[in-house]
Design a protein around this nucleic acid. Structure first.
Lengths: 212, 212, 212, 212
DNA sequence: TATGAATGAGAATTCATTCAT
DNA sequence: CATGAATGAATTCTCATTCAT
């Protein structure tokens, strides 16, 4: 009786989510520039001035989308890997969570993420999000290293993490473009490359997830 | 002392290059949408109609930029790796050539490449270029595998290649953003991740380029 | 004293009419191509975007003008001639109504009509309108023929009607160009040519309207 | 060996005709505004500056086309009707010549004529041409009247002539749009309307050309 | 004579954004 | 709270027209 309470005079919080839903949808379909505030407002079933009143300018709106989706993604990954597990298990779980998220939000996050690249106004936002990821990965590596009593220059760590994140994003794109592909399988492949490297792969070594 | 005779009535070929230079510069600074034909024309030291006459529409102009830069890059990589070398050497040389190119064309290619992502009109062009890269890498892996008498499903190969290319692009971005970084060193780092994988890196294994 | 409350925030229907008024005026003065949306908007006392928002593209705007004026004209002629009257009386009344309309809308319809000719995009629209006229005339002739129990090939009828319509339009142009001329007199002249033909005119026969 | 003398360095007069041919063709296809000097020049197989050098501005070029085609048409009609023949025969011959010309130059003159209407820059030119026609017709009528010792106010004559010319032009349009139609038959139909009028046509009277 | 190179000027169209109700 | 009405400001693209060679 009350899932959609008659469509009018909704509390602000609800309206904002509707708008963000619409915005994510439109932005992901059309891209940032090709999306018009008109279309977003219409899609949200609300008038333009409301959008401005609640979420502000077009850029601010896009940033709000980024934030919401980014937060959701980080949450999805967050709980995946307990710090006391071995490094490869942690990495694997993180990847599985990540690709699972992307698979479930294909035209949501993945495309949204794609939109943010290259649009200078959002370079900052995007960098922040990626940095968070990079830090997670770098942290994981560092943790593992310390466990073995070794160390690597911070910059090396960062660069390695960067490469891993880049590879992951690239496969996420691939996944978003191949609707029939299986997220978990994709995660496994990624894990193979990331953990074993091309060298070992070429020699027939493979990495397989332990049964959970 | 007179390579460019004064400033006017240059032959078409010359003007086209000037325009492409300007376009690459402006596009890379501002991004595709934020760049105006006015600015590009002005920067090329010529009037807008000439740009339209020679290179066509804004989109066509951008595509022309993509082509020129893409071709240059592929050429830079092309001769780098003879097929009869061991796989790791080939990969290493390819990476070195690639990062060398990016390092030399920082605000040219790297940024241009960034712009192309996410802008739907260029998805096709970009996909084509990336596919060429992926094929090169996949081909190299395949070659190495056959040499050992083993085989991998084509799709796996593609996915691995995708991941490697993604990681490489990601580091290229990083390189483009860190003007002080050394391309060759970056290539080495990339090689480490790509060839050895995080697992071995964590155990202190490292890959080092043989003296050329 | 306040039919138009100040000058701002008028309802859409009103604004649309203002715009159409301005458009008809400008188009008729300058012709389709020489008219700029700027001038039309300014003349309508509104900004360009509103014109686009309400009436669309320049071509669509022109078509809207054609429609409005065409409809008005057909309405003016519509009631003029009851089908049970003799053919000459019906023709006469139709002509009188038509020239009356043109006389009253000199720089409106007549000139607008002139603009539509030759501009390929509007060939269709114009043909439609003219066809309606031709059909009216042809129908009238056909009706009269059947009353006498005779028949003419449909194509002959069409061609005759075409000629009559052409002659009428030509005189309408003449009328629009001679502001001092009397519409009713022009209608009478047209009636003479149309009904009696040059042959009888030369022999001193004349047709005169019966007192209404 | 010399119909087309090698394509270069032709005498001015020849070049001008080539250009006019091209211009008539392009103008008639595209209409005045949609025709570009580029296309005309290309179609004439010559460079733009030459067009400007020989025929001047775009408007002047169009006027030149009008003149050439108009002159040709007047010449085609000119000899058709000796002044000592009866009025109906003269009218008939004139019409036959006119429709014959139009039929032979369908996409040339007819369309060109259509283009000139409505484009204000050519109102004058076109009016001149039409006036010449109107005068011919009016003169013919006047001549016939005087032969019978009667007279009509000059303005009435003009108006009648206007109507006849309008009807004729209208049928010419019709003819130009119906490639399968027979010019001579069209002329006959026009003659019927013009000479007998709708009144007599409805009563079954018809006019038939005497055997030549 | 003939032309490739070059441009000034203008036109349509679109959008993010804000009043006034 | 909500919205229809309204606009300033760009931006792409086109074309007739003219130099300089």
């Amino acid at each position: 009786m009350s899932t959609v309470p008659a469509f009018k005079r909704l509390p602000r919080a609800v309206r904002e989510q509707q708008m963000l839903d619409a915005a994510v949808k439109v932005f992901s379909r059309r891209g940032f520039h090709a999306s018009s505030m008109d279309e977003i407002a219409e899609d949200a079933g609300i008038s333009k001035p409301m959008v401005y009143a609640y979420l502000g300018t077009k850029e601010e709106l896009f940033v709000a989308c980024l934030h919401r989706e980014g937060t959701r993604m980080m949450q999805a990954i967050a709980g995946a890997a307990a710090p006391d597990l071995p490094a490869d298990v942690r990495l694997w779980r993180g990847l599985r969570a990540f690709f699972g998220f992307v698979g479930a939000h294909r035209d949501g996050w993945a495309v949204l993420y794609r939109q943010a690249r290259g649009e200078q106004p959002f370079a900052g936002e995007l960098a922040t999000m990626r940095t968070r990821l990079v830090e997670v990965v770098a942290g994981m590596l560092d943790h593992a290293l310390r466990a073995e009593g070794r160390e690597i220059a911070a910059i090396d760590l960062e660069v390695v993490a960067y490469a891993l994140v880049g590879a992951t994003e690239s496969l996420a794109d691939w996944l978003a473009d191949h609707p029939e592909a299986d997220p978990e399988k994709t995660a496994t492949r990624m894990m193979n490359v990331a953990w074993l490297g091309a060298g070992q792969l070429l020699h027939g070594v493979t990495w397989r997830p332990a049964a959970d």
